[in-house]
Design a protein around this nucleic acid. Structure first.
Ligand SMILES: [Mn+2]
Ligand SMILES: [Mn+2]
Ligand SMILES: [Zn+2]
Ligand SMILES: [Zn+2]
Lengths: 146, 146
DNA sequence: CGGCGACTTGGACAGTGTCCAAAGCTGGAG
DNA sequence: CTCCAGCTTTGGACACTGTCCAAGTCGCCG
């Protein structure tokens, strides 16, 4: 579709550094839902000297630019989703933190204005919690009674 | 309504320690959405020698018992919500992490079975993201142009 | 009251994320 | 093409959240 992320960065006055290119490349690999650390590991495979600090700040920038979506699902680390369009929700396994996308169409109801508590709302995010197939299986193996 | 938390603990075979009583007391104070650290601070005001480890494990137990709900909203720390019934969703300020409750009635749509990705679903959680009144104000002060 | 074993403690430890001074590099000016 | 202002990166220190464990404590039952 439109110009790649690197072009949009240049157009917005950002310098095109090797680090930004590599992070963009990792994200563009369509590998959904990576943590900052995973992004760093993959980026370092291409550009070994890239630092953690740079990956963190780059992800924040891309997120602020709307190029990537930051997800705070239950896990310890935030996840970065390069799939910003179309907007979608997620299923999360509460045992192993596996994440799946919810296909478009499902959405949260709008909140009536009197429920806003004075806030300016921006977006609603639904997280469907559950147990994934793999985790359900291991549970059966570990507890085969009944 | 029903018996207080302390009674339910005894009934389930848990020992009634001073630490559990104090944590229960802090939560019962209807102070919604406390982090583990805040719970520790408040508990320590009553029982100064209570340890962080105990507060963390106690909160996990209460959460597993359904006495409290663990919330992973955007902030760094998980929050504990003593208001488990009725189930409700939340509004979160992405600037200052303020949290508000959504009144009952609002709920996420059920996911069609073919969207489950093999998971056994347990609960859906909606997070309405936005900017609270206080944060919106400070932004205006900091950026009075236009 | 005594003892078993559940519970707590305190500190070490791991993971995530932020910060900053110094060094490096990009991109535009000349 | 060169130069350089200042945007970026680096690496390490640091803060915070949460987990773990061995040792000591204490609730509860007999
Ligand atoms: Mn996604
Ligand atoms: Mn609540
Ligand atoms: Zn799982
Ligand atoms: Zn706010």
């Amino acid at each position: 579709m439109s110009a790649p992320l690197v072009d949009r960065l240049r157009d917005r006055g950002y310098r095109l550094t090797a680090q930004r290119r590599v992070v963009a490349e990792v994200l563009a690999g369509d590998n959904t839902h990576l943590s900052a650390d995973e992004v760093h590991t993959r980026a370092a495979a291409v550009l070994p000297e890239i630092s953690r600090a740079t990956v963190y700040s780059t992800l924040q920038q891309f997120s602020a630019l709307g190029e990537v979506r930051e997800l705070a699902l239950g896990g310890a680390a935030k996840l970065y989703d390069p799939n910003v369009e179309p907007r979608h929700h997620h299923l999360v396994c509460d045992r192993c933190d596996a994440v799946y996308d919810v296909a478009r169409g499902v959405d949260a109801p709008d909140l009536p204005a009197q429920e806003h508590h004075g806030m300016v709302l921006d977006a609603a995010e639904i997280i469907y919690h559950g147990v994934c197939a793999a985790c359900a299986d291991t549970a059966v193996i570990a507890d085969p009674e009944e």
